[in-house]
Design a protein around this nucleic acid. Sequence first.
DNA 1: GTCTATAATGGGATAGAC
DNA 2: GTCTATCCCATTATAGAC
Lengths: 196, 196
Amino acid sequence: MARKTGSHSNITGPRIRTAALSLFARYGYAAVSMRQIAREVGVQAGTLYRYTPDKQSLLFDLMRDHMTTLLGAWDQADCTSQGARSRLSAFTRFHIIYHLERPEAVFVSYMELRNLNPGNFEIIEDLRRQYEDRLESILKSGRREGVFHFPDSKLTTLALIAMLTGVNTWYRHGGRLSPERVVEAYWEMVEKLVHP
Amino acid sequence: MARKTGSHSNITGPRIRTAALSLFARYGYAAVSMRQIAREVGVQAGTLYRYTPDKQSLLFDLMRDHMTTLLGAWDQADCTSQGARSRLSAFTRFHIIYHLERPEAVFVSYMELRNLNPGNFEIIEDLRRQYEDRLESILKSGRREGVFHFPDSKLTTLALIAMLTGVNTWYRHGGRLSPERVVEAYWEMVEKLVHP
DNA sequence: GTCTATAATGGGATAGAC
DNA sequence: GTCTATCCCATTATAGAC
């Protein structure tokens, strides 16, 4: 049986999400219209509402998916049986590489928090806290093992995440440094920062 | 001679800028309307255009003033005759305190870059680069003096600034740590990070 | 599954009265 | 120096045809 003309439901949904992510990252959620997203996808604006209840849900779904995928990927990569120094090295590499591979999702997830409605904001913030907690527990293990020293575990967690995420603001593909070299340099700095 | 009723030109201009800064910080440039700014100030929307040519100039002026004031304040505070370690300590303190005192201007200046038109963007980016260069030259002096070691001066500059500016994302007035304690903790981390 | 058409609202910016 | 009134256009979201 021939497929009906215009029967693209399996592909239109993802294409809407991809277009929205890209436009939100470039111009910001508030500056992007549903018509703009529709044009990018190649459908009329009304059609978008078959795939999302409203613009807010589109933003929220993108951010929630980014955060849950990030958490899942780290939990897969983390070797909890290893020592804290080795786990921190793995975290440094994972965080930089994972974020460099998804600049748009990272950018939207950090910049558009204030455009979430209160309920959605709380859910995203909880996921972010969970990710921070993963790093903090590594730092605390290292302190118990006597291989790390730092002034305050929560504050050091936030300092390290800010430092590592900052790579996304300046890294340019094909620039002076390869991702591998960036990871090396940051690990050298992280290692000294937590040194006893 | 009695002042004319409604003659507030000396105060309305600054009040527009304060209201705009506050609203841009809370809701984002694109999400804030000129009518909203006018309501906050207590004038009609048309009146705003006696004080700014358009909405874009309002944003640009706020960002440019923040960056030039920041640069001027650091150049005032920097004791170039001192050693690099002492200057880096001063920079760490200056950056954290100065940024904590102006959360709205800092937030707007980091979040609304993409809402600047190309010419304005270039001017702000140049000011930002100048500020980064101030830190980088301290790091290079320290390396020449033999009191610092790091993998790459530009990369370390950006890592440190990201780390220090990150304080603004989590610090809450009246929270667990005083600004003074935050400065101490960050200096301890910065010092180790650049340790030979 | 997508389209056209439209409702209801609000946007930036300007003109001219007072 | 501020207000009122207005121009013109864009916005989100929905209804109903095909």
